[in-house]
């Protein structure tokens, strides 16, 4: 796999949105004709000013918008390699969410123990075997570099953890079910710089196993961690390219203005 990649610098597309439009129940069109690939084992960052639609776009990937009646999708998001259109009405959103997990802006652990939080996704899938659960929980907590901090108190309430730990717990929870893509919606905006650094390091490690799509308000963060960057503005995708290209030599004037802080 690694050799193949070296020979072929062209990346593998894990998912892509084609002509995606989205409008909310009140009629506002939040996304306009978005075409964006998400590459396998890469971090794609979505940047742009508030209200540009980057979170809305992210939440299309796990059909979060289905929770609120009246929202309308148009276009498709194809998940490779099986070419499933995530937005197809015939595709079960629960199936989608099992393959694409999400970490939210504010840590939102469940009112359960640390162990049960991580085991939640597995239990939802019907896993009952205690040994399988134990192993998976340990693996996921290690994957989220939280294991050493919590291994002695797995059955403590998750709310007793610090904010940064809670967010890593949410990552472990999302990780436990072996997702193919992980969505991060401004995962560090509620955290202090040290916790932020931990999460960023974590993401850099996670991309070995899966593909990451992250919304961030912090341009330095996008520059630090992502391989690809997409700049969105007013529901449109303005520019999408390799991160160093977007940050050093953007094609569009708007992108440059935003990145250099002239605007936004």
């Amino acid at each position: 796999m690694v050799d193949k990649k070296r020979k072929h610098p062209k990346e593998i597309i894990k998912a892509e949105s084609n002509a995606l439009n989205f409008s909310y129940a009140d009629g506002t069109q939040a996304l306009k004709n978005i075409n964006l690939p998400v590459y396998e084992n890469k971090i794609t960052a979505l940047i742009g000013p508030s209200g540009c639609g980057k979170s809305t776009f992210l939440r299309c990937f796990n059909r979060m918008h289905d929770l609120y009646p009246g929202n309308k999708y148009d276009g498709e998001i194809i998940l490779h390699p099986d070419n499933t259109n995530i937005l197809d009405k015939r595709v079960d959103p629960i199936e989608v969410r099992m393959r694409i997990s999400m970490v939210f802006q504010k840590p939102n652990p469940f009112p359960k123990s640390i162990y049960e939080n991580v085991a939640y996704g597995l239990r939802v899938r019907g896993e009952k075997n205690k040994r399988v659960l134990d192993d998976k929980v340990e693996e996921a907590l290690k994957g989220a570099s939280l294991w050493d901090e919590v291994k002695k108190r797995l059955h403590d309430l998750a709310f007793n953890l610090s904010g940064g730990q809670q967010q890593r717990l949410c990552i472990a929870r999302a990780l436990a079910t072996d997702p193919e893509i992980m969505l991060f919606d401004e995962p560090t905006s509620a955290l202090d710089p040290i916790a932020t650094m931990n999460i960023e390091e974590l993401m850099a490690g996670l991309k070995e196993k899966l593909s990451i799509l992250i919304v961030t308000h912090n341009m330095q963060q996008a520059a630090r961690i992502s391989d690809y960057t997409a700049y969105m503005y007013l529901g449109e995708l303005v520019e999408h390219d390799k991160t160093n290209k977007v940050f050093t030599n953007p094609r569009k004037k708007e992108t440059e203005d935003y990145i250099t802080g002239k605007f936004g």
């Binding site: 999400m102 939102n108 939802v124």
Partner: peptide
């Protein structure tokens, strides 16, 4: 956020209501 978290884990409405 709690509901969204549960749904994002692939929980059904019933599982979300009862377990979370």
């Amino acid at each position: 956020a709690m509901r969204e978290g549960a749904y994002a884990m692939g929980a059904t409405r019933f599982q979300t209501a009862i377990k979370v």
